[in-house]
């Protein structure tokens, strides 16, 4: 069983993010960067599938500048077997991310690709679906529970959907995107950290993968959301209706 898991480097969600003065991005000084939390869940799921099968390989792929190797190494320290770094100067938009991942998936021919349902930095939540479409594979997004058939031909995936859970069966290979409740990721043990140092990591440029990047999105401006104003307590329902109608103008 070969499992390909994608990880994205994102600012630590526990830290406060500030937009830079030019409005072109966030202030990166003194920021800590981590594996996108949904991707960490994807890594954990990959490891669990391998452990349950008693055989297999978990391959980590990350796209970005050389610093993303830190996040690959972190996933290897959790227990993944080897890493692939797709070396690009900046983080591509979802479509180009999917293009690069498609090339990696074709090269690696995994039984399953597991991704986070979205990255917590730009929150697009598109790359997984696009990748599945480009590969012509089945997809199961927002996974809550994943079970792989004994012969690796199918997977039963329970998905988080509006109002409840939905269980579907998909043919493998497929793309699965992990939701929050899929599992609780392990932390890297110290022996795991030491072992990760010697695990192999390949580096490819887009050209090595036969991909030409053509950005389809342009970041025009980034700004902080307006600060939240303090609430008020109203005395009566009539007053509430009045304020909703005349001040907030929402009804």
């Amino acid at each position: 069983m070969k499992i390909l898991v994608t990880v994205k480097r994102v600012p630590d969600p526990d830290m406060k993010v500030r937009v830079n003065a030019e409005g072109t991005g966030i202030v990166e000084d003194n920021m800590k960067f981590v594996i996108n939390p949904f991707d960490e869940i994807a890594v954990e799921e990959g490891l669990r599938i391998k452990e349950k099968k008693g055989e297999g390989e978990v391959v980590i792929v990350a796209i970005g500048p050389s610093v993303v190797q830190e996040q690959i190494r972190a996933a290897l320290a959790m227990g993944a077997d080897r890493g692939i770094h797709v070396d690009v100067d900046s983080y591509p938009d979802p479509l180009n991310t999917a293009k690069l991942l498609k090339a990696v998936a074709e090269k690696e021919a995994p039984n399953i690709v597991i991704m986070g349902k979205q990255a917590v930095d730009d929150d697009y939540g598109q790359a997984g679906q696009m990748l599945a479409a480009m590969l012509g594979w089945a997809q199961a997004t927002f996974a809550y529970k994943v079970e792989i058939a004994d012969d690796n031909s199918k997977a039963t995936v329970t998905r988080e959907v509006d109002g409840g859970l939905e269980t579907i069966e998909i043919d493998l290979p497929a793309v699965v995107t992990a939701d929050l409740r899929l599992n609780e990721p392990r932390y890297a043990s110290l022996p795991g950290i030491m072992k990760a140092k010697t695990k192999p990591m390949d580096v490819f440029k887009p050209a090595d993968l036969g991909v030409e990047l053509s950005p389809v999105l342009e970041l025009v401006r980034m700004e902080e959301p307006p600060p939240r104003k303090g609430g008020i307590i109203v005395e009566t329902v009539d007053e509430l209706l009045d304020k909703l109608r005349n001040e907030a103008k929402v009804i």
């Binding site: 890297a188 950290i193 030491m194």
Partner: peptide, 14 residues
């Protein structure tokens, strides 16, 4: 080093 950063993270996660 990379492993020192990971070690700090593990300490925090634990």
């Amino acid at each position: 080093s990379e492993e020192q950063k990971l070690l700090k993270k593990t300490a925090r996660d634990v």
